[in-house]
Simulated assay, not measured.
Amino acid sequence: MSLGELFEDEPAKNIDVVVEGRRVTAGPDTTAADLKAQVGLSEDEILTYRTPQGFEALNDDDVVATEVDEGAELQAQPLADSYVFG
């Protein structure tokens, strides 16, 4: 579900986020997997971000624009066998 679907009177929009120190634009339907591919990250990495409650992780199928705020800083973390942050 895109932002436009959530708020029918507001069109879906692009947001800018920072991935590993690089500012990139995520479209209204861009998933975390799409974003990783866009910046050249491995499929074996997971994108994380900080919230007031602590660290959160994006699943590959999460739509970035619906999960994080404009300007969010995302960090790549390696996945090891059974550990989230290898």
Score class of each variant (00 low, 15 high):
residue 1 M to K: 11
residue 1 M to Q: 13
residue 2 S to T: 14
residue 2 S to P: 00
residue 3 L to N: 12
residue 3 L to M: 13
residue 3 L to S: 11
residue 5 E to V: 06
residue 6 L to S: 03
residue 6 L to K: 12
residue 8 E to F: 14
residue 8 E to K: 14
residue 8 E to A: 13
residue 10 E to C: 07
residue 11 P to R: 01
residue 12 A to V: 04
residue 13 K to Y: 04
residue 13 K to C: 11
residue 14 N to S: 09
residue 14 N to C: 02
residue 14 N to A: 03
residue 15 I to F: 07
residue 15 I to C: 07
residue 16 D to S: 08
residue 17 V to L: 00
residue 18 V to I: 09
residue 18 V to E: 01
residue 19 V to R: 06
residue 20 E to A: 08
residue 22 R to H: 00
residue 22 R to N: 08
residue 23 R to H: 08
residue 26 A to H: 01
residue 26 A to S: 03
residue 27 G to D: 09
residue 28 P to F: 06
residue 29 D to H: 13
residue 31 T to I: 07
residue 31 T to S: 00
residue 31 T to C: 08
residue 32 A to S: 10
residue 34 D to G: 05
residue 34 D to L: 03
residue 35 L to N: 01
residue 36 K to N: 02
residue 36 K to R: 07
residue 36 K to I: 01
residue 37 A to F: 00
residue 38 Q to E: 08
residue 38 Q to Y: 03
residue 39 V to C: 04
residue 39 V to F: 00
residue 39 V to A: 10
residue 40 G to N: 08
residue 41 L to S: 07
residue 41 L to F: 04
residue 42 S to Q: 04
residue 44 D to I: 06
residue 44 D to W: 01
residue 44 D to H: 01
residue 45 E to R: 10
residue 46 I to C: 07
residue 48 T to Q: 05
residue 48 T to W: 03
residue 50 R to H: 12
residue 50 R to Y: 09
residue 50 R to K: 13
residue 51 T to I: 01
residue 56 E to F: 09
residue 56 E to D: 13
residue 57 A to I: 03
residue 58 L to W: 10
residue 58 L to Y: 09
residue 58 L to G: 05
residue 59 N to Q: 13
residue 60 D to S: 02
residue 60 D to I: 01
residue 60 D to G: 05
residue 61 D to S: 08
residue 61 D to A: 11
residue 63 V to L: 11
residue 65 A to H: 11
residue 67 E to M: 15
residue 68 V to M: 06
residue 68 V to F: 12
residue 68 V to H: 11
residue 68 V to E: 09
residue 68 V to T: 11
residue 69 D to R: 15
residue 69 D to A: 15
residue 70 E to S: 07
residue 72 A to R: 10
residue 72 A to F: 13
residue 73 E to N: 15
residue 75 Q to L: 15
residue 76 A to T: 10
residue 77 Q to E: 12
residue 79 L to N: 11
residue 80 A to W: 11
residue 81 D to G: 14
residue 82 S to T: 13
residue 86 G to Y: 02
